[in-house]
Amino acid sequence: MTAEDIARTLAFLREAERLKDVLRSGRTSGGRPESTAEHTWRLCLMVLVFARELPGIDLARLFRICVVHDLGEALSGDVPAVDQAPDDGRAARERADLEALVAPLPDDIRTGILSLAAEYEAGATPEAVLAKGFDKLETILQHSQGANAPGFDYAFNLDYGRSRTDAHPLLAAIREQIDAATRTRMG
């Protein structure tokens, strides 16, 4: 890697650091809004601790997809799940933001990240299916344990991302336990 490539890569990493300040609607167990970076960290941790239950899966690819799945949020932020709509333009905006974010990177790295993001968005490979499912599971897990504001709609979690979490037996089994915790929180 040339000195120029290192400088361009560092420029990208400096911009990606913004994910640490992009806040989501979920709250930590201490009551603080979680960041997109924190969500992505625990998403990757979930994959790590359940990896032995995923025979035949390219784990390195799954981790890479998980790491890049929300990178586009570094520029325009996160849209809470309850505010998302199928044709709200969010996907196109996040793709444009991701393209701007990775622009400084060397061509091969930029192309690789964009390819992983497109794979996640399409959700057609086994690794992308799992990434999407684990992404939903991490979100509802956070909602089930976070110190949420009064009036938080726990019932929303019981249907949120169901098609994604029903796509693999392991995801469905994890979902069953998180849903039980959600029902307990609902009282």
Rank of each mutant, 00 (worst) to 15 (best):
V49N: 06
M46H: 08
R64Q: 11
C66R: 03
S163D: 15
R183Q: 13
A81G: 10
P126I: 05
R183V: 10
F63C: 00
D70N: 10
C66P: 00
N157W: 05
R42D: 06
L105S: 06
A167N: 07
D21W: 10
P150D: 04
Y154L: 09
H168V: 01
Q145E: 15
T184M: 09
L54C: 04
T111H: 09
T2H: 03
D5I: 04
A3N: 12
A81H: 04
V82F: 12
D97V: 13
F152Q: 00
V22F: 03
D108T: 08
E119I: 02
T184D: 11
E138K: 02
S76Q: 08
A167R: 01
E38D: 13
P150N: 09
P104E: 02
A103G: 00
P126T: 01
A180W: 08
D108F: 13
M1C: 10
Y160A: 04
R175S: 09
V68E: 04
H69F: 06
G30H: 13
E17L: 15
F50P: 00
F50A: 03
G26D: 14
H39W: 07
V68I: 13
V79L: 14
D58N: 14
R32W: 11
A100D: 03
A85K: 15
E17Q: 13
A11Q: 14
R52C: 05
V22M: 05
L101W: 05
M46T: 01
E17R: 14
R52T: 02
T40C: 11
L62G: 01
V47G: 06
I140A: 03
E127T: 09
F134G: 01
G89D: 09
R27G: 08
D88S: 10
Q145L: 15
K20I: 00
L116V: 00
R95L: 15
A3R: 14
D78N: 13
R93V: 07
D153S: 08
V22S: 02
H143C: 12
R95D: 11
I6R: 10
H39M: 07
P104C: 07
A173R: 08
I174R: 01
G146F: 01
D88I: 08
D87N: 14
